[in-house]
């Protein structure tokens, strides 16, 4: 098993938060895709990704984010995909590619002591 990306899933009544830790490069994206398909197979209403532990995101990861958003919108056209606590370099990539605001919303939980 490749340990470059690990997960933690937290469910409340209306919100599912997937915590990701590691690298979402081309190899991590494969693990991410598998995991997200598993998560989307459940009847979830709102989904958040916590990216505090994500130090690296490349275009292969962006593709999975876009896929997730499309799948969520099939269920509910108004659904939003929130990325919580992303590191600076990851926000830069989201912003440069037009993902920020158009595909995902970024939220910070108040823990400002984020490395990056």
């Amino acid at each position: 098993m490749d340990n470059r990306l690990t997960f933690d899933l937290k469910n409340t009544d209306s919100l599912t938060t997937l915590y990701l830790i590691g690298k979402i490069d081309t190899l991590g994206a494969r693990i991410f895709e598998k995991k997200i398909k598993e998560v989307l197979a459940q009847d979830i209403r709102n989904l958040k990704f916590n990216f505090k532990g994500v130090e690296y995101l490349s275009s292969s990861g962006l593709r999975i984010i876009l896929y997730t958003k499309k799948e969520m919108q099939k269920r509910n056209p108004d659904s939003e995909l929130i990325i919580e606590d992303p590191q600076k370099q990851v926000v830069d990539v989201l912003s440069m590619t037009g993902f920020l605001d158009e595909v995902v919303e970024v939220e910070y939980t108040g823990d400002k002591n984020i490395s990056g």
């Binding site: 490349s58 275009s59 292969s60 876009l66 990539v93 440069m96 590619t97 037009g98 158009e102 595909v103």
Partner: peptide, 18 residues
């Protein structure tokens, strides 16, 4: 088409754009 609507974009070009 980086300025076109994101959902319609060809996914392959994103990486090279970066």
């Amino acid at each position: 088409n980086i300025n076109s609507k994101i959902y319609d974009r060809r996914p392959g070009g994103l990486g090279i754009f970066l």
